[in-house]
Structure formats: structure tokens, C-alpha cells
Design a protein around this nucleic acid. Sequence first.
DNA 1: AGTCTTACTATTTTT
DNA 2: TAGTAAGACT
Length: 754
Amino acid sequence: MPPAPPSGGAPAYLNGLNLEQSDAVLSTDGPVLVLAGAGTGKTRVLTTRLAHILATGRARPWEVLAVTFTNKAAREMRERATHIIGPGAEGLRWLGTFHAIAANILRRHAELVGLRSTYTILDTDDQERLLKQVLEAANVDTKRFTPRSLATLVDHWKNRGWTPQKLPASEDFANGRARDLFSAYQERLKALNACDFGDLLLHNLTIFTGHDDVLGEYQRRFRYMLVDEYQDTNVAQYLWLRLLAGGTSANICCVGDDDQSIYGWRGAEVDNILRFERDFPGARVIRLERNYRSTSHILGAASGLIAANRARLGKTLWTEAEGGEKVQVRGVWDGEAEARLIAEEIEQARRAGLRYADMAVLVRASFQMRAFEERFVLTAVPYAVVGGPRFFERAEIRDAHAYLRLIQSDDDDLAFERIVNVPKRGVGDTSVQRILSLARHQGVSAMAAVRELLTSDELQARTRTALSAFVRDIDRWRAGLDSSSLSALTETVLEESGYTDMQRADKATGPARLDNLKELVQSMQAFDSLQSYLEHVSLVMELDRGAGEDAVQVMTLHAAKGLEFPLVFLPGWEEGVFPSQRSIDEKGEKGLEEERRLAYVGVTRARRFARISFAANRQVYGRWTSQLPSRFVDELPPAHIETRSDTGYYDGAAPGFAMPASRWEDSRFGGGYSSPGWQRAQRFSRQQPAIEARATAVSRPAPQASQPWAIGERVFHQKFGYGAIVSIDANKLIVAFDKAGEKKVIDTFVEKAG
DNA sequence: AGTCTTACTATTTTT
DNA sequence: TAGTAAGACT
């Protein structure tokens, strides 16, 4: 603990905060909603508030729950809190992302939902493979009903807090099989001792609502709660927070900005923030409206734009930074001309003293990036694409992880399937199916099934040799876990398995993949156990890689949230592109409002200069299309913009797009959830035990009762044909086959003849 | 088991 | 247009 502030004087960490900011920091008790507009010092308020709670002894570090959405935000909060109050902040065990904290809680109470504390967290790729198996097992046409679409749907359900039992009848997939498929998937997860991202929160809800004692323990522990980006919370997260808050007088502080809610498609419910005062009657609402980032023209343009939205709490941003350049709006002939123009302006800005890293190109969708990349390469403008394909989602990284997961545990069937024949060892599809079928019949893991099959004649000799070597390798590497470092072990595994050789043989993509693997091995040096490493990668899907170069940042508008740049380019403001046609088609007026918030986020990223542009023609997926300027261009207040059109494609007034005022019915949560939320959560809690009772600790389906075999009995085998039983040893039979001779087989593969 | 060919699809993606 | 994924073919 740092020394108490000198009596009478305000603590140093309050210096430089404006009135509203310090109000938000000092109103520690009771529910508080901080509406923090773009650039108003939100992070500073949040971290200072956290530091203040600790510094004044209101709570000890482990008694504060502080949740964020991203690992980056969590890291930043921890660093800044440590900066203010020193090492005392290190005890902040409950500062992290929703998922990381929920995963911790689930580890402690896994058995209450039928999991073991060693459960694994599946990523979206594993999730889709598993769903594919579920769909195939249920004879669903996976062409018409893709695993991916079901994955999206399941995610959506879980985001709403729905278990299969709670799934509303209105939800459908594959002609009325939604619930069955959902249930089957959950059963498979349990059998694998695994859960997906959505489950982390959902299992928490099941535990909290079914076990008052557990919930009570956490409610007492968390004396203060801080929630970042509240506008992005989904229903499950909302319920989770409500349960932990324990009542309407909790010391909960939610910080957010309804105007920056851009993840509705991910399940975020702007309504959560809009109804905070109803959820917590008597809550303090503090608005941070003084902007420290942008010039008044930029703020004016952004404010005018967002004013067209209906569903908002309303804030008026202001700044003392008067003047500056007006937001420039330009029309060009086509996408190529747009890229050329922006590349030129980048060089101009650089001659005027800006660094490349001070500039960003923010696009709606990644297909827009190509034009810029091509132009930047041509004109030697250094650039960096932020986001893009994620490191941990690359095939080679996932392969390496699959090896490690299998070394960690024989039970990881998904890992087994992924790498049993990578690199090729001559274990074909048929053999793999045979293994999995045996595993399922006996209720054991695939590895166990392999071990068993090796003692029989079921597999071809060549396959058997290959699998036997594979099993021996895995066992040997596992034995090496204790004696060598994780990164050394991984190198050994990649080398000895033949994986690196396989990549070396691939002249096209091999080198890049080998680089990635090297990087992976590098990043492992920070970990001392395989367990902790695997846990880390499943929750923190990121790798800090050397940024720092002076380069123009190219990214999507979504990726830009929370960032700021002196000069921001906003290309592609055309109807259909931005706002995205699909967004409007799918979500109507709500979708449009979210697009508008995205535009608002984009404009407010700029500190000094914002340059909006649109093209009359654009090549989309190889097809030329004519574009109209975005309705958002019309909505920009003329006083804050300056339109320039060297080509005459823009005459200052784009065709009007009079949108009828929204009359979209607010059918928020599929019925029930809407009012009042707290009572709903309580009711939800009463119903849970029924589900809980079913979640017994069965981790694999019960083995099938073994058939009563008799010596001399005639049997039929898929591969060896007819024969008679010679001897019986538990589930292994020696059968004298009419054609194939005497073979040792496993009873699940034979049936009684005749 | 590996290679070639064809068909399909294509926003945003905090964990 | 391009990139992938599944199926057919050898």
C-alpha cells in the first residue's frame, strides 16, 4: 500500500483531472455509469478510479473485479494502475477480460457443470470441426446447413444466455433440429472435457444460478466492480454482472459510450447501457464530454453525423481546440484514383512534418485494403496492415499446438484427428474412422483406441507400424516434458515428427510457415509449463510482435476503435460499401445506426486532419460497379467540411436518401428478458437447477455392454468376412476366419452371423 | 494417397 | 478476381 495522501491535500493522482473526471473517480460507492465520449479520457478515469479505491483502502486488490473486453485493455489498465500506486496493484487477480475471469471461475467449479478443472477451451476452428461431426452424425446435409452457420448460431444463443433447454422454440436450424443439434454438441463438448468461448460465460451463469453459496462467495469477495466498454456487453455478460453485483446498491461502475457500440453483430446489446438507470435505480450518471483529442471541426463533423441516430443517450462533445482544418470530403473516379490520391497526400503530409505512423487509412471491409497496398508498394510508402489473419489461427501454428495438446493429454481427440496423419504417415481416412468408431463404442479417447487396436489384427500391418511409431513418439515427448524446456521440446517435436521436413519440402508456403514456427518457439520461452502455455494461447490469441516501424497504419474501422492518429483517411464512403448493404439488409434500421456509429468512430479517431473520400466506380470481386456517395456524406454538417472534387463527380449535394424514421419494433431479447432485467435474472436462476441436475459428471458416453460371446460361435467381420470364435480374452477375440485365417479382433467390430 | 479440377463464395471478428 | 475446399481421377 502506498502512503496515505497528505491530510487536507488531494492525492497527486487527481491532478489534472477535470470536474467530471474526478467526480467519476471519487464516486466510489453505489452504482455509477460513466458515459465517456470519444477522446474524453475514459481510460484515465477508469485506471485512476481503480487506483483510488486501492489507495484509500476501500478494498484490497483481490477484492476488486475489473473487466475489459480485450487483453490489450486489461494490460493497459494493470500497467497504469501499477504506475499510480506501485506494486500493490500486482494483487489484482480479478482484473482481466470477461473470458479470462470466467475461465478462472469455471476452473474452480468445473465439476458443477460436468467438466473437470483441466478442461480445454476450443477455438472457432475446433468448434466448427466438432459441429461438423455432430451434423454428420445427425445426417444433416452439411452443404445446405454448414457447420459455420451453426457455429454462428450457437454463439449467438450462448451470447443470449441460452442453454439447449432454454432455447426458444422460435429458433430454428435444419428444419426444426436446432435444439437437438445444440444438445448433441454440448454433450460432445462435455465428453471431450472441453468448452467453447461462449460456454465460459454460460457455465458461469449455470453455476451462479444453481449454487447460491458459490455466488454468495463471489458477491462478498468483489466489493468493487469496474466494467470497461459497457456498450459492448452481450446478454450473458450482462446477466453475469448482474448476478455478481448482487443487488441494485452494488459498487459497480460501468464505463462506456453508446455512440461507439459497433459490435452488435457479435451479440452486443446497446440496450444494456441505455437502460442502466432502470437496472440500478438511483445510479449516478456522469457524462464526460470534454474532448482532449480532436479539433472542433472534426468533433463538429462527427457530432452532426451521429445526431442522425435515434437510439442514444445523448452527449455533446466540446473542445477548447478551436479551429484547425475542416474535414475534407472528396469524390474521385474510381478506387484506384482514390488510392493514388491518398498516397500523394501521405507524402505531402510527410513533407509537412508528420511521420508515416501518424497516419491511418481506415476502411469498412478488408477487401478495400488491396487497392491501397498495391499503390503503397508501387510508390514505396511504408505501411502496416493491422489485424488480418491471426497468428494463432494459422494452420502450422494450430498443427504445432495439436501436437502439444496431445502430448499434454491423450484425451484430446480433436488434436489427435488433426495431426495423426500430418505429416503423412500412411494413416488414411478409413483407419482414422475405424479408430474413432472404436473410441466412441468403448467410450474412450482416440489415443486409447489406437493403443488397443495395436494389439489386434484389425488394421493393416503398414498402418499398424505407423501408428505404433506415432504412439511411441507421443509417449517419448511426454516423458521429455519435465527434462527439457517447452520451446526445446517443441523444436524436438516438430523436427522428429517430420513436420519441419514437410514444410521444407514445400517451396511455396514452406519458408513463411517455418518462420512462423520459429516465432512460436520463441514466444514459448516465457512459459515454464505446457499447461500454462496452452491456457494462455486459448485465452490470449495474440502475440506481441515487433511493431514500432514508422509505417502508415491500414486497418478496418473496427480495429481502429480506441486508437487515435493525427491524420486519418476514410475512403470508400459509398452506398453499399459504407454503410454496408449487407448490414442494412440484415438488420434494417438498427444495422444502419450501427454503421453510422462506425462512421462516428472513424471520424473521431482523427486528432487534426480527417479526409473522407468516395469513388464513382469501384471494382468489387472483379466486377465493376457504379457507386453513389454514402448517405453519411450528406449528413456531415456543411459548416465543418470542405468538399473538393477535382473531377466533378461530386457537386456538393449527393442524391438525397430520405430515410423514414425508424419504426422498428424493439423486440430485443426474444421475449422475456426485456423488463425488468433484474427480476428476469432471478427467474432465470430458479430454473437452472433442473439443467444442473442433468449435468452429471459423465465425461464420456458409457461403454456399450459387451456382447456375451461363446467359443465356436459364428461371427461376421467387415474386413475378414465369416469365421468362428477360437478364444475370448475380455473384449478381444481370436477368430478363425474362413478366408483370412486366424486373427485377433476387437468385439465391437464383429457381429453375430446369421 | 496424392494431384488435378471444379465449384463456390466473398463484412465487421474484442475472446 | 482469387482463394479455398471438396470431389474426381489416376
